[in-house]
Each structure stands twice: as structure tokens, then as C-alpha cells.
Design a binder for these strands. Structure first.
Length: 808
RNA sequence: GGGCGCAUAGCUCAGCGGGAGAGCGCUCGCUUCACACGCGAGAGGUCCCUGGUUCAAUCCCAGGUGCGCCCACCA
């Protein structure tokens, strides 16, 4: 047989088998009544697997398999998010390529078109999760646009209405001119851009000031918005402009006189220290305008172009309008200067169009009251974020929570259950009303807006289990246990699930939230398709196998941000190959029966595996994965293969030796299975061939083998002796059993015997000296932990023994 | 501007009060019959800087410096 483990074919075969045998299904192999539920972050319905999904899938699958093997009734339910703006964006781009647009199609045809698109190309990511080996219950797939799910969204909206938390208000919102919708602050992406900062002179309306100054200079990056100016503001403490406050200046181009006002929000140091106030198109200015009772002029329309208020500039793009205004300034000698200026501007995270702050009528959900029970839950740690720093962040996010703009002027999504009668009364009921709740008018028109995508996502843990119906699934699997996700959606999703869960179920949806690391590209930049820094996990799986990919990703899961290291994946591939090869060794020999008690190396490896199992399970219980996979690597490579397997190799023909070796291997496979399910199952199946119950995925973890710590110490001594021998050619005193292992592994006939005994002597002398110095230190003996002191004594004694043996 | 985090071997990262570690890369020696995608031996580190706490600091504290990410209304 080829001495190289090839994951391809093997992995796909097991993935099919597990699923066909029903082993991914909820409750498969459950041996007791406790449940373990992971609430999956539903990927976008149009999405493809990226590195974050692969890492998160590896983490969740490790937890699922671990609990399933421990007899829990597990549920890991997959599904998709309709991803309102993202999906609409994809389809609109496609329409643009075809030379048409959603407006030409009309709403109904457009939504139909979205469904067609999803039927053709959507919902592909679950196939990719399968390839990773993720043991989700694929038969229970849910979608936020399923009829039952829509029902849940509508009922929840009405619930919020009845609670009195929903209201409509005209506010400045982030407007995406491409999608022509409001988006939330959280959907705005700030990017650095190079712009020009234009310094324009605004002449005083009543002639020069007493000191002779005829104008006041402002700085702006958007000259076109001068058309919407209603004032010029200066800082009240700014000496330069004290005399100007209360006077009027004339806004250029429109030649409109506007007052000079004082406001502390103006930065003295920026630009000229004077700010043109344009409440219709800037959030700061909106605040200033409101506080000073100024009017609001809107000169830019929902499409991002200048509107009719802009007079002769109406219909122009902002860039064109900027040019016209700058030309006017030049012509009238009111352009002081233009300088290059780098700053950050908001863009739509989906289409990267520059965000336009616009006044707009939107629906909002008041957040202070709904957030309160969730805040308590976090403070009382009924939900815990891991790591702790993210828990603190989640708490702060609830403490200062702005109201939530829930309406979107999109077509793809959940249309709000709001109806207006001709008299302007609002009716909010579900199922849809027959007549206006206030005046009884039957002439009702439904609000055209849809809900923010995250509105439906917030209901994911209970809606996927059937809420608002009290289904058996909801009774059994709510509340769940774990949710795992990326840092950036703590506010968008995690926190919202917590308050909605408390609101409709009166219980938190899960107890632990894992915030996993962000995997950066190898050069430290963010992984992103548009930057060309993305790396497709499916390519990695194709090259190294799913097991190796999972291993590598788990190894990279420790810090907040980690650069992708192919070496970690390679390490996983090596581990799979090593395990596969050592199993070939153990399974290849024919055994003759020889009855005898367990030898030292046998007791040692069983004790080692038990010790590592305790360590690894402890780490997993705390959602700490990276160190555990390295511990497993060391156990398999160093302990099992390099020491144990080498030590027993000469006696593998004895059936007792082989039986113990297979028992030890079996324990290794169990322990490694949650990390590398395929290769472990492949090996396992070679000696558990029968029923589905023989499958490792649902196998039972055995009790500890019950060997002693003394065996660990005895073996340590063999390893140290071997190290000394390899350096110096000298064997220090060993018992019979120990000497046999030493001979089997080190094979003196082949080892170098011209080593450097002098160097070894020198090293030991330094160690002995150090130990003597520490133990002579009274403060150390008095203050250090007793076991630390004891360990020092033991080390000193051992070094003295070795020194004697070598020099004697 | 605010928050979080990082700085340890050439690279990617563990360790986090008492002897500096792993993988990859590098050097040397090994066809040893599970694995040469292997085995063994080795080279390579003021554990970012400066102070402080301590009998003892890579580890704890303070302040620098340099990075990364998230959040935020300097036009």
C-alpha cells in the first residue's frame, strides 16, 4: 500500500455515510436526556464559504461531535438569511448587466426575479459546510423567508407595536443613493479617501467689519452643499470671530444671506475655524440646526443628484455641481484655496456607494426598555461572551444603545405589517386587517418598506424552532447552549437575539457566545475578495483535506487577529498521515497469544492519554481550542508514535501487546475525532466494522484506564536517560523494564557513541549549582508554593544522581 | 477621538511569576522492515524600550514606541 494517507475520497465517503445513516440528525446516538444545542449563524443565502465560516464551522463541529460522543441529545440546525440589501444588490447588478433595472421591472416582478435567482444559484453554502465535515442536521434547513418564518417576523413586529416601542420619525439617516434606502450606522463602512478641501469666502452682508475684514472663510469638502447652507457657525471661544457673531454673511452661488452663529461643536483648529451649516446633509449640522431653530434645506435627492431646490444645478451629479460651484467661486474671486485632504467617508458596505446623509421618514424601535432585561442577563452572566473582553464590550453596547431604524426602502425582505387609511391612521395587525383600527375605513394601503435584515435574524433561535407555535422542538431545544461568531456582529446580531429571546420566550437563547479570531491574509491585511487577499477554504481543503484544514484553523483560533499560516494546515496534514501510518503498523502484524501483565510503556501510554484527555476536555469546556490541538499533536507524534510504538514494535507479534496497542489507539481516535473526524473514522472502521452504532461519530467515551502517575514518572526517567545518552553516550541507571524500553527506542547499536560527555557534565554541574542556590534561599523556601519547592528538591536530587552516574 | 488586542527563534504562533517552546525553514547524520510527507542530532532569542512591585519578572503594574482590528458626526 502507498505509505501516504490520501484524504480525498475518504472524506467525501464518510460525509455521505454519516448523513445517510442519519448520524447528523438531532438526537442521533443520544444516551441521556441532556440536550446540547448550537445556534448557527445563518449565512447569506447567496454567500459562498469563506475562511471565517470555515473556522467557525470547525469550532462548532468540534463541540457538536464532542457532546454527541458524550451521549447528549444534540441539535445543530442549519439555515440561510435572506440578507435583504446584500441579495437585492446582487440581483440589481445582474439586471444592470442586462441593461434593465428593478424600477423597470416593478416590485412584483423584481421579487419574483430574486426568487428565481436564489433557486438557480442560492443556498449552495451548506454543500460546502458538508465538505468541511460539519455535522449539521441538514434535513432541518430553515430560511428567513420561509412562510413559517415570515409568520414569526410579522407576529414579533406586532408584538413590539403592542408594547409601544415602535414609532415613526423624520431624522437624518444614512442614505445609500444606489439602493435608495436608509441603512443603519452599523452597515456604513468608513473608508479613507483623498478629497479636496475648498476654502470659500462668504462676504459680510452689511459690508466690512469694524476691523476692515470683508468676508469670512469656511472650509468644505463638498462645495455643492453650499446651496443648502442656512448659517455659518464658529466656536464661541474663538477670538478671531467674536465680532462676526450675530452678523450675516452671504452664501456664495445662491447669494443668500445667512446668520453667523456660535456653537461649541465647531472645532477651532479645523480648516478656517468657521463651519458652514447644512442641516439637510450633515449629521453635525443637523444637530446644530435643530438647536438653533434653523430651517433645513434639502438640495440633494434620494438618487444622490441635485434636486429642484438646487435651481439651475438640478439634475446634476454632486461632482458636476461641485465643479460649477467652484467655478462660480473662482469667477467671483471668492475661492481662497483648494488643498488636498485625506479623510474618512461613509460608504454602503454592500455597494460601496458614498453615503448621503438625508432627512427621511423612518420607523424606529425604541431600545432602552427592551435592552434592560438583556443587560441584566449579561451582568448576571446568564449569558457569557468568551473571551471576557468581548463580554464587557457587549455590556457597554447595551448600556448606550441608540434606537433602531428598522425600515428599509428595499423590495426584497419582510414588508412591514403596517397599513395606512386615507386619513393617515396607522393600523398594525397580523394577519392583515380588514379595516382601519381607528376609523374603520376599508381603504387601506400597506407600507411599502421592508424590515432591516437583522430584524428577522434577531429571531433566529426561536423562529427556527417554530415560534410563535409552541412546537415540541421549541419545548425541547430552547434555550440552546452555544453561539459562535465573529466580533463585528455582536451588536448587529448577538445582543439582539438575547433581548428578543427574553422578550418572547422569557429566557436567554443560549448561555455562551464564542467570539472567534479573525483570520487575516498572510500579509496581515484583511481577507477580502475586492482586495484580492481572499483565500478560498475549499481550495485549502482540496489541497490538504478537510481534517487538516480543521486542525490548522483551530490552531489559528487563539488570538483576536491571526495571520493565515499555511504551515498550521500542513501540520494537520502531517498528523493525519502519521496516525494513519501508525495504525497500519498496529494492524499489519499477525499476533500469537502470549499471556503477561501490562508492561511499563503500556501503563504509561494509557495514563498519558487519560491525562491529555482531561486537559483537552477542560480546555474545550472553556472554549479554548488552539492549545488543545497542539497537545494532541504532541501526544500522537511524540508519545504514541516515537516512544510507545517504537518500544512495543519488537513485540507486536504478541497478542497481548497488540490488544493493548489497539485499545490505546482507540482512545486516541476518540480524543482526536472532534478535531479530525474523517481520518479517525477511517481507521476506527477497520476494527469496528458492523452497525452504525460502531461509528466513531456516536461512539461512547470510555472511563479512564485507571493507570498511575507513578508510571508517568518512571517513563520520564527513561526519556531523560535517552536524552543524556544521545548527547554523551552514557546510560544512567535504569530498572530492567526501563532499560528494555530504552534499548528498543534508542537502539544503541545505531546511535552515535562519540557524543560529548564533558558537555553533559558541565550542563549538569550548572543545574546542580542553580538548584542548590535556590534551595539555600530562605525567602524562596518560605514564600514559594510547597509543590514548587518540592519539585526543585526532586530536580536537584535527580541532577546529582545523574552527575554521579556520569562522572563515576 | 473612544474601545479592544498584539509585540517571544528567519516566518506563523504557543507559554504568562521559579530551568526560553512548537510547526515551517536552515545545518549535519541515517534506505531503522508504519511513515524519507520519516527518524535522530544541531544552529538560531538583550522574550519591543524605560521604570516599578517581588527573594525571584518574558509573565504582574505604570509610562513609552510600533502595529492590527472595531466603534465614532472634525466640516
Amino acid at each position: 500500500m502507498e505509505p501516504l494517507y490520501k484524504p480525498h475520497g475518504v472524506e467525501e465517503r464518510w460525509q455521505r455515510t454519516w448523513e445517510e445513516e442519519g448520524l447528523y440528525a438531532a438526537g442521533a446516538g443520544a444516551r441521556h436526556d441532556k440536550t446540547f444545542v448550537i445556534c448557527v449563524p445563518p449565512p447569506n443565502v447567496t454567500g459562498a464559504l469563506h475562511m471565517g465560516h470555515a473556522l467557525n464551522g470547525s469550532i462548532q463541529d468540534l463541540l457538536m461531535r464532542w457532546h454527541r460522543m458524550r451521549g447528549f441529545d444534540t441539535l445543530w440546525q442549519p439555515g440561510y438569511d435572506h440578507a435583504g440589501i446584500a441579495t437585492q444588490n446582487v440581483v440589481e447588478k445582474q439586471l444592470a448587466l442586462e441593461g434593465t433595472s428593478r424600477k423597470e421591472l416593478g416590485r412584483e416582478a423584481f421579487v419574483e426575479r430574486v426568487w428565481e435567482h436564489l433557486d438557480a444559484t442560492g443556498k449552495t453554502i451548506m454543500g460546502q459546510f458538508r465538505r468541511l465535515g460539519a455535522s449539521m442536521d441538514y434535513g432541518r434547513e430553515r430560511f428567513t423567508m420561509d412562510d413559517a418564518y415570515i409568520e414569526a417576523v410579522m407576529r414579533f413586529f406586532v408584538h413590539l407595536w403592542e408594547r409601544g416601542w415602535l414609532y415613526r420619525a423624520n431624522r437624518l439617516v444614512n442614505w445609500c443613493p444606489f439602493h435608495e434606502t436608509a441603512i443603519s450606522d452599523l452597515e456604513v463602512q468608513h473608508v479613507e479617501v483623498d478629497d479636496a478641501l475648498t476654502y470659500a469666502r462668504y462676504p459680510f452682508a452689511d459690508g466690512p467689519l469694524a476691523d476692515g475684514r470683508a468676508s469670512l472663510t469656511i472650509a468644505t469638502v463638498r462645495p455643492a452643499t453650499i446651496l443648502g447652507d442656512v448659517a455659518v457657525a464658529v466656536n464661541p471661544d474663538d477670538e478671531r470671530y467674536r465680532d462676526a457673531i450675530g452678523k450675516e454673511v452671504v452664501a456664495p452661488f445662491v447669494e443668500r444671506p445667512v446668520p453667523v452663529i456660535a456653537d461649541a461643536r465647531v472645532e477651532k483648529e479645523f480648516g478656517s475655524g468657521a463651519l458652514k451649516v447644512t442641516p439637510g446633509h450633515d449629521a453635525v449640522d443637523f444637530g446644530i440646526g435643530a438647536d438653533h431653530g434653523l430651517p433645513t434645506l434639502t438640495v440633494i435627492g434620494p438618487d444622490g443628484r441635485m434636486n429642484e431646490t438646487a435651481g439651475e444645478l438640478a439634475g446634476l451629479t454632486q461632482e458636476e455641481a461641485d465643479e460649477r460651484v467652484v467655478a462660480w467661486l473662482t469667477e467671483h474671486d471668492q475661492l481662497e484655496k483648494r488643498e488636498s485632504y485625506r479623510h474618512s467617508v461613509g460608504t454602503c458596505e454592500r455597494c460601496h456607494t458614498r453615503i448621503e446623509p438625508l432627512i427621511s421618514l423612518q420607523w424606529w424601535c425604541a431600545m432602552e426598555e427592551p435592552a434592560r432585561p438583556a443587560l441584566d442577563a449579561l451582568r448576571e452572566r446568564r449569558v457569557r461572551y468568551h473571551p471576557e473582553s468581548q463580554h464587557q464590550f457587549a455590556i457597554r453596547s447595551f448600556e448606550e444603545i441608540p434606537d433602531w431604524n428598522i425600515s428599509r426602502q428595499l423590495w426584497w425582505g419582510h414588508q412591514q405589517p403596517l397599513w395606512y387609511c386615507p386619513d393617515g391612521h396607522v393600523t398594525c395587525t397580523w394577519p392583515p386587517p380588514e379595516a382601519c383600527a381607528e376609523c374603520g375605513s376599508a381603504e387601506l394601503e400597506r407600507d411599502p418598506d421592508v424590515l432591516d435584515t437583522w430584524f428577522s435574524s434577531a429571531l433566529w433561535p426561536c423562529a427556527t424552532l417554530g415560534w410563535p407555535e409552541r412546537t415540541p422542538e421549541l419545548e425541547r431545544y430552547y434555550p440552546g447552549n452555544v453561539n459562535s461568531t465573529a466580533r463585528e456582529i455582536i451588536r448587529l446580531w448577538e445582543n439582539r437575539m438575547i433581548w428578543t429571546g427574553l422578550e418572547v420566550m422569557e429566557e436567554v437563547p443560549f448561555t455562551d457566545v464564542i467570539i472567534h479570531s479573525t483570520i487575516l491574509a498572510a500579509d496581515g491585511r484583511r481577507m477580502s475578495k475586492s482586495l484580492g487577499t481572499g483565500l478560498d477554504p475549499l481550495d485549502v481543503i482540496a489541497k490538504y483535506g478537510a481534517d487538516a484544514t480543521r486542525y490548522g484553523l483551530l490552531k489559528m483560533s487563539s488570538t483576536q487577529d491571526v495571520r493565515f499560516a499555511e504551515g498550521a494546515i500542513e501540520e494537520g496534514r502531517k498528523l493525519a498521515n502519521k496516525l494513519w501510518n501508525v495504525s497500519r503498523l498496529l494492524l499489519s502484524k499477525r499476533a500469537e497469544p502470549v499471556s503477561r501483565p501490562q508492561s511499563l510503556e503500556e501503563r504509561w501510554i494509557l495514563a498519558r492519554i487519560d491525562a491529555v484527555r482531561a486537559e483537552v476536555e477542560e480546555a474545550w469546556a472553556q472554549f479554548d481550542f488552539s492549545p488543545s490541538v497542539q497537545v494532541l499533536y504532541r501526544l500522537i507524534f511524540d508519545d504514541f508514535c516515537d516512544w510507545y510504538a517504537e518500544a512495543i514494535k519488537p513485540r507486536l507479534g504478541e497478542s497481548e501487546v497488540r490488544a493493548t496497542a489497539l485499545a490505546a489507539l482507540e482512545r486516541l481516535l476518540l480524543l482526536l475525532h472532534p478535531v479530525m473526524p474523517h481520518v479517525t473514522e477511517e481507521i476506527w472502521s477497520q476494527f469496528h466494522v458492523d452497525s452504525p452504532l460502531g461509528r466513531l461519530i456516536v461512539a461512547e467515551w470510555p472511563e479512564a484506564a485507571g493507570t498511575h502517575a507513578a508510571d508517568l514518572h518512571a517513563f520520564d526517567r527513561v526519556q531523560e536517560a535517552a536524552a543524556i545518552f544521545r548527547r554523551s553516550g552514557v546510560v544512567v541507571e535504569l530498572e530492567d523494564d526501563e532499560l528494555r524500553i530504552f534499548a528498543a527506542v534508542v537502539r544503541p547499536e545505531r546511535a552515535k557513541t562519540n557524543g560529548n560527555a564533558e558537555a553533559e557534565l558541565a550542563r549538569l554541574r550548572v543545574e546542580v549549582e542553580r538548584g542548590e542556590r535556590m534551595l539555600a534561599n530562605e525567602k524562596f523556601v518560605a514564600n514559594a508554593k510547597p509543590d514548587v519547592v518540592e519539585a526543585e528538591r526532586e530536580k536537584l536530587a535527580r541532577y546529582r544522581r545523574e552527575l554521579d552516574a556520569l562522572s563515576g
